[in-house]
Design a protein around this nucleic acid. Structure first.
Length: 478
RNA sequence: GCCUUCUUAGCUCAGUUGGUUAGAGCAGUAGACUGUUAAUCUAUUGGUCCUAGGUUCGAGUCCUAGAGAAGGCGCCA
């Protein structure tokens, strides 16, 4: 061992490499044994498919074979041949087997059977060895790659915005404090003695910094971790998640919507084209789970149908006021079926309202624009009606709000007066204001939650299952 | 943070109206079997019924509190 080139499982199951003796390494998913022959299903994470390894028991030490169980890591040198079995076209006839690490079958928690996602979440350190999580993480990678691809092809620059931030004026949620002070000693909030000499938090958004860069580089995007200390206990919130935030000079709200729609379609199409095996595995798994559910809770479209649906349909665009009228006159509202009635212009839509618009009324992705200014952030551009701002939310089935964005207020006076109205410290954000003082231009941007997109593409119902090591209230394991 | 539900073998789950020694499938272990594919067949090990109190002649089952989890809601991406 050592001289042979290591092949990946995907190289063999997709197209036979016809060298004589080749080397494969991976983890055993399953062993099947009869009197004269044993079969191993070996996976190395390169594909959802397993490599079938055939062992002639008369030619290999039996002690060695007995040490091999589900979870064992090994390297095998052997020959690729056409498979006699029905589930694969090629298989590896083992000539030499090296056990790298045994896995005690009495204590190894993964079995060749279905495990609940809750159980696998408790063993996140091992769950990437399962079919489902292998598929999810390969798809997650494909999406990340496609994001950079998309922006690069459009001339966007990737900007790293800081993770440590001293601005707490963004209003995007509760923040995690960062300090080197000894909290055991109960120092009375004297941040002058702290590492940075001031109060510092983990970022809740890279937007304000990205705006600075866009107002000089034209088109930029950030793609980094985001931290929210909200006590959110839902299947679509994390305390640490990854967000993509493009920020574009010379883009108005319509350009912004066009970009958001083009991008989502590109990313979904990319996974349809490049993750076929993983998607069809997830689709089948979802179908099996659906069969256990009552008719009403089942998906009306299967996974790839839902993805194609996004790619092939123009997103419905409408103003908040139009959405408000539709909801106000909707059957569930008139019959008092909503928990939150739609009666007064200016209310914030609840997720039941968004789901009605997306899943019942339009039956496709929806972009709502021009929200009432009093329910939106200070930096959003005020419309001429003096009531609304150029904000947009892209709503998807199941996951809800997948993108939130706006045209930014580029007029110094308007921005300043809005900050005063909303009690945002102009002293703290002097640098933000200066971009409007010197060479201001119209510009726009939005935030896309990576995990929510991965959730939609994989059909996973809990966001904690689309990030390798989820952080949520009361949970920071692994 | 609020509401609802759940917690029984390593995993997935049964467990009747409160009643003797708590069950199944899978995994594990032992064996059988000429190429299997969540292999099959036979036998078999394995339990603090989440924790702490309480009611009762008797609690896996009923009550109270706590812990953890899931789903829904709010906050949002």
């Amino acid at each position: 061992m050592g001289i042979e080139k290591r092949y990946k499982v995907i190289d063999i199951v997709e197209a036979s490499k016809k060298s004589n003796d080749i080397l494969i390494s991976g983890w055993v998913r399953n062993k099947r044994q009869s009197k004269n022959v044993a079969f191993l299903s070996v996976n190395d994470g390169s594909t959802i498919k397993n490599l079938q390894v055939v062992i002639d028991l008369s030619k290999v030490e039996i002690d060695l074979i007995e040490k091999i169980n589900t979870g064992t890591s090994l390297s095998i040198i052997g020959k690729i041949v056409k498979s006699q079995g029905r589930d694969q076209s090629f298989e590896l006839i083992a000539h030499k087997i090296y056990i790298l690490g045994v896995a005690d079958p009495e204590s190894y928690p993964l079995q060749p059977k279905k495990h609940s996602f809750e159980f696998l979440r408790d063993i996140s350190h091992l769950r990437s060895r399962t079919n489902t999580f292998g598929a999810i993480f390969r798809i997650r990678h494909a999406i990340i790659y496609a994001i950079h691809n998309f922006f690069n092809s459009k001339g966007f620059l990737n900007i790293h915005t800081p993770i440590l931030t001293s601005s707490d004026a963004e209003g995007a949620g509760e923040m995690f404090k960062v300090t080197t002070l000894d909290i055991e000693k109960k120092i009375k909030n004297n941040y002058k003695d702290d590492f940075f000499g001031k109060e510092v938090n983990l970022t809740v958004s890279g937007q304000l910094n990205a705006e600075l860069a866009a107002l000089g580089l034209s088109e930029v995007y950030t793609f980094g971790p985001t931290f929210r200390a909200e006590n959110s206990n839902t299947s679509r919130h994390l305390a640490e998640f990854w967000m993509i935030e493009p920020e574009m000079a010379f883009y108005d709200i319509k350009d912004n919507m066009d970009l958001a729609e083009e991008m989502l379609k590109y990313l979904v199409k990319y996974t349809l084209d490049n993750c076929k095996d993983d998607l069809s595995f997830l689709e089948k798994a979802e179908g099996d789970r659906d069969k256990q559910k009552p008719m009403l809770e089942r998906q009306s479209l299967n996974l790839t149908e839902r993805l194609k649906f996004v790619c092939n349909n123009t997103f419905e665009r409408l103003k908040y006021s139009e959405a408000f009228e539709i909801l106000k006159n909707s059957k569930p509202n008139k019959k008092n079926k909503f928990d939150f009635p739609v009666n007064e212009w200016g209310i914030d839509f609840q997720s039941e309202h968004e789901r009605y618009l997306v899943e019942k009324h339009f039956k496709k992705p929806v972009i709502i624009v021009d929200y009432p200014k009093k329910i939106k952030a200070f930096y959003m551009r005020q419309n001429d009606d003096n009531k609304t701002v150029a904000a947009m939310d892209v709503l998807f089935p199941i996951v809800g709000e997948i993108i939130g964005g706006s045209q930014r207020e580029e007029r110094y006076d308007k921005l300043l007066s809005r900050m005063k109205e909303m009690n945002i410290s102009e002293k703290q954000l002097w640098w933000y204001l200066e971009t409007r003082k010197f060479g201001t231009v119209i510009h726009s941007g939005f935030g896309l939650g990576l995990e929510r997109l991965v959730q939609f593409v994989t059909g996973m119902t809990n966001i904690r299952d689309v990030i390798p090591f989820p952080r949520s209230p009361g949970n920071c394991k692994f």
